[in-house]
Each structure stands twice: as C-alpha cells, then as structure tokens.
Write a protein that binds this DNA or RNA. Structure first.
Lengths: 200, 200
DNA sequence: CTCATTTTGGATCGCACAGTCAAGTAAGGA
DNA sequence: TCCTTACTTGACTGTGCGATCCAAAATGAG
C-alpha cells in the first residue's frame, strides 16, 4: 500500500534501533515506572513518531518483550549447541548468566521482571512469557536426556523434572542478580545446581 | 503521650488488620500498580486515617514489607526447627512453598516482587530484603551443616554455597508460582533441588 | 514544481494519582 | 455537662500521566 503510489517522506529513524532502546528502558524500570517521555528520550524520536510506529505504550512494551525473548533466547540456544558435552553446555549457560549478571547493569531478566510485575493479571504478557518458558523446558530436557545417555548426568534423573528445575534456577539467578548479589553468590548458585545433576 | 492527658476519641479501626490488608494488596499488585483508593478500600478506612496512621503510601509499603518478612520468616523458621531430620525439614520448606503457591491467588513472594520491581534503585527496600535474605542464608547453612554431620547430605557439599543455592531455588519457585506454573512443575523443582543435595 | 505523506514539536485534553484541608463527630476527663 | 482532643469524612488541589490534535517543515515520487 506504500509501494504502488507516490511515496512521501521516508522514515528518518531506525525502527529496530528505537525498539531496542525502548526495550532497555522497560528492562531497567519495568512497565509502569517507565514514562513515555523517558522512552522517547531513549529512543531518540518524537512523540507522534512513536505512536505512528508502535501504536501505544502497551504495544511498544509487548514488542519489546518479544524482541527480548527472541534475541536472548537465540543467544542461549547457540550457547547450548556450541559446547562439547551437554552437561557442560548447560553449566556454561548458568555460569554465563552468573558472569554477565555481574558486570552488566543489574537488570535481571526482562521476562522474569514482566512475570513478577504483572503476575497472571495480563493474559497476553503471560502467553509471551509462557512460550519462552516452554521452549527452554524442551531444550533443557533434550540436553539432559543426552547427558544421561553419555553418563554425565545421574542415571535416575527425570529429565523433564530436571529441566523445570534448571529453568527455575535460571530465574532464581536472574532475580538474585537484580537484587545485587555478589558474583561469588551467583557462581555458587550455578555450581551447586549443576553439581546436583552430575553423575556420582 | 496519650495517657497522661485528656484522652480524645479512640481509633475505630485495628491498625494491624489494616496493615495486613494493605500488605495483601501490595503483594498482589506491587507498589506502583496499587492505588491508594484500592488500598483504602481493602483496609476499610478513610483516606486521612491512613495518612495519620502510616504517613504516606511509601511508608505504608515499607511497613507492609517488613510485616510480610516477619510473619512469613517466622513461619519458615518454625517449620525448619520442627521436622525430624534437617534435610527433610529443608525439603518440607520447599514443598510447602510449592504446595501453598498453588492457591488460586498466585502472588508469589512479596520480597521477590519488591526486588524485581525496584531493583537496586531503592536503597531502603533493598536493605529490608537483604536482611531477610541473609537470615535465610545462615539458617539454611546451619541446617545443611547438621545434615552433612548426620550423613544425609553429600559430604563434599559447601554448606554456604548450598545455602545460597537453596535460597535462589525458593526465589525461582515463587516466581514460577506467580507465573502460573502447574503444581507438578513446582513439585518437580523442589524435589530435584533437594535430591541434588542428598548423599548418594 | 507539485502533491502526498511523514516527521516534528508544541499545545492540550481527560484522567488518575498522591496528598491536603477543613468541617463534622465522638470519646473521655474535669 | 462541657470542653478538649483527635479521629473520621468527603471534598479539594496540584501534578504527572498517556494520548490526541494541529500546523509547519521536510522529503521523495511523478
């Protein structure tokens, strides 16, 4: 609808970049506490441009949350398939979260923050978070099954239960990071969690 | 200051009960999303009564958070000292959280919600949460040391690291509960966490 | 150039919010 | 009984919010 007729002035800002900047603000401050003025300043665009490009604050947030999940989910899956053994790959994911939660600004995980901010009160946000969670569950379960097959993980492990446990551990790590926990604390959490899965 | 002179009209509402009701609202909705009108309706008192009795919304929240920690902390410590063996007491705490998180309200943990809502931006809230965290850490570490002594826990366990891990696991459980996880999921998380600490 | 369309900034609306004020009211001491 | 005190009640204020509107400037296609 914009290609067959006279094209007018082109967009002057990079939509993806603006979205990423908005994501950073929401990640830091949550939904309610992030004001539109703050968002616009970070995005570097005018008011009307934001409303034209994204609809309203809520839709901007939903898009930012989806963008977060896509970006950081892809990161994790890459890391999972990269390492040598499945259990050390999982350990790598936990330790990486522990490591980067320290030097980074302490924002925790945007999806976790969304969960605690909205609880079950917002169905659409809940669905977005849930889809990410179930992707993680199946990925972890697959890695754990392979770890069992190779004898790295305890043979009596229920991989589905352990996958749920691992995801919960990541959530705990992220919240601990946001609460300002020291790097040693995060490292301890990750190490004990993985050691508990390891074959004796 | 109210006893040696002419006493005027007495308070008509129960301050503790009002505080508890406010706590419920903050627990459900967080700080920002809880409006004063909503709080007053739940507390069953008038506007001015709240300002007289508690100062302002922020002080009310701080008091509610402290009340939450005192009440639920005491609950946990009682449960910890109650059971027969230290490891099964710890298991009992996790499973109890998993069990009671299944109620229809799904509020998670108020302290966790406070952490994710404010991050490190509010020092006073951070200090309140931190004090609760460190109480938990020392309690868990003591229980774990005793469990090791009795041969219930793995002998190679670093009890301080494991205590940090257990606390993080509780955090993960609470967030999972708030996100609407099924009871089996919560049960799995608790079981895998404890099994990882158990002596082979 | 001309026109269609978008960007941009300012002005403004309506609303919900936290917090305040003042008048009304009840309890207890003298 | 009357007076002091302070709690209660409801109306009110100022502020900041998200969202909309408007008009001028900008820009590319025909």
């Amino acid at each position: 609808m914009t290609s067959f007729m006279c094209m007018a002035r082109t967009k002057e800002f990079d939509r993806d970049q603006a979205l990423r900047r908005a994501m950073e603000v929401f990640w830091d401050r949550g939904y309610e506490a992030a004001s539109t003025e703050e968002l616009l300043a970070a995005m570097g665009i005018g008011r009307q441009s934001m409303y034209n490009a994204f609809g309203d604050k809520r839709r901007l947030y939903l898009e930012a949350l989806r963008h977060y999940q896509a970006e950081y989910g892809a990161d994790m899956f890459e890391r999972l398939s990269g390492a040598g053994s499945p259990l050390s790959a999982l350990a790598g994911v936990l330790l990486e979260v522990a490591r980067q939660s320290d030097d980074e600004r302490r924002r925790g995980c945007m999806a976790v923050n969304a969960t605690t901010e909205f609880g079950r009160s917002d169905q659409e946000i809940g669905a977005i978070v849930d889809s990410g969670t179930s992707l993680c569950h199946t990925a972890y379960a697959r890695m754990l099954a392979e770890a069992k097959r190779r004898g790295e993980a305890r043979p009596d492990l229920d991989e589905r239960a352990a996958a749920r446990f691992l995801h919960s551990t990541l959530v705990g790590l992220r919240v601990s990071a946001r609460s300002g926990a020291a790097p040693e604390v995060l490292h301890d959490i990750a190490t004990v969690a993985i050691d508990g899965l390891r074959a004796p």
